[in-house]
Design a protein around this nucleic acid. Structure first.
Lengths: 197, 197
DNA sequence: CGAAAATTTGATCGAAGTCAATCATTGTGG
DNA sequence: CCACAATGATTGACTTCGATCAAATTTTCG
């Protein structure tokens, strides 16, 4: 609760981006959430932990990653106006298989599942907001599957650049490579114009 | 509306499977939905069409597929107690990139987006139901991405069998192969125990 | 029963992985 | 404030999994 003004603005952002909330709901939302600013590389969630919170990025960036045979695999990026959490832990109540890490100094809104449930029960429009958020994520996941499934490494990279043109300026290539399901070496070759036919 | 009893049971199934509905909401739901039984191979949605309806499978099976360079790619299966529609067309209002086809003689509940919106506006618990359904699909999509991303053809097939042990009895291998993002030939070799190391 | 559809099997090829070494950039402590 | 360690990215040689092309075989169903 570093800055109540900022929190109000963050809530307005959520409401404007996903689904409008009444002033009444926003007021309760404000009581239920907190705003933080933390430095780059901060780990918000660790593998194996119980996950009770989700994060909405106001300014900055974060990623979700997991370890597969010791290798760091990025599964999700979140930038301004997007949510991030350990999706399995948060929604299924199971221990997190993900880490959530800040990629930049980041200001974010934090809210617990418990408070979300309270708000959902009290306010129809907050439940609606939840539906809109999950719907949007569902659609993002779907198009990612289509992309992964039948695109070459090159095409996958280009598809990502279309959705997130700025990503290479903000995120190390290693994370982009593992997100795309290709190796760092392959990504490097793709990006090198000398290797074009 | 072949069988009003069946429709009532279908609605109970939805409510029991995803999120409880009050009797009042169920009554309105009943007015807004219809029950159909259609034969195998019926196409419910075609590519390019405007999509206004979603389907809940009571008995039977369906798949969503799209054409990529003329090839038939299965993107989604739905069996008993699951929903299916053209996810992009239905949620984004864009022309469908999918076909929806029945894989067996199938009894299903049909409801339009217009009626869903009406029910969502009128009943908080119906909005909640929508949130639960999209949340579940979101989680399914997530674990599918993990599976596609870093599993071998063999592992992907085994992962699918874990979730849907009966699938090979109900669905042609061609569709399973394209769903897994592998060729029919590779799937055939995987399934042949002679090819095991 | 016979045609069409579905599946299996075989031979070959290529995109991307692995392993390994080098080069570049960043940031921290002496 | 520079040095040098650590991290990040590039390049090269070789390998492999699964795709492709082609044909045979099995199953399904009118």
């Amino acid at each position: 609760m570093e800055n109540p003004q900022g929190l109000e603005q963050a809530i307005k952002l959520v409401s404007d981006t996903y689904s409008p909330l009444t002033e009444n709901t926003k007021a309760d939302f404000k009581q239920a959430a907190e705003l933080f600013t933390l430095e780059k590389s901060t780990i918000l969630i660790r593998e194996g932990e119980h996950v009770s919170k989700t994060y909405f990025i106001v300014k900055g960036a974060a990623r979700a990653f997991y370890l597969k045979d010791g290798k760091d695999i990025t599964d999700w990026f979140a930038f301004e106006n997007e949510f991030i959490t350990s999706i399995d832990g948060f929604f299924q109540g199971t221990p997190s298989s993900y880490f959530i890490e800040l990629l930049e100094p980041t200001t974010f809104l934090e809210i617990s599942m418990q408070n979300i449930n309270k708000l959902c029960n009290k306010h129809h429009d907050f439940d609606r907001l939840g539906r809109m958020i999950t719907t949007r994520i569902m659609l993002q996941l779907r198009s990612r599957i289509v992309s992964i499934q039948f695109e070459s490494a090159q095409q996958k990279y280009e598809s990502l650049l279309k959705i997130r043109p700025y990503i290479t300026q903000r995120v190390p290539l290693t994370h982009i490579a593992s997100y795309l399901g290709i190796t760092l070496e392959t990504l490097s070759r793709i990006r090198n114009p000398k290797n074009r036919i």
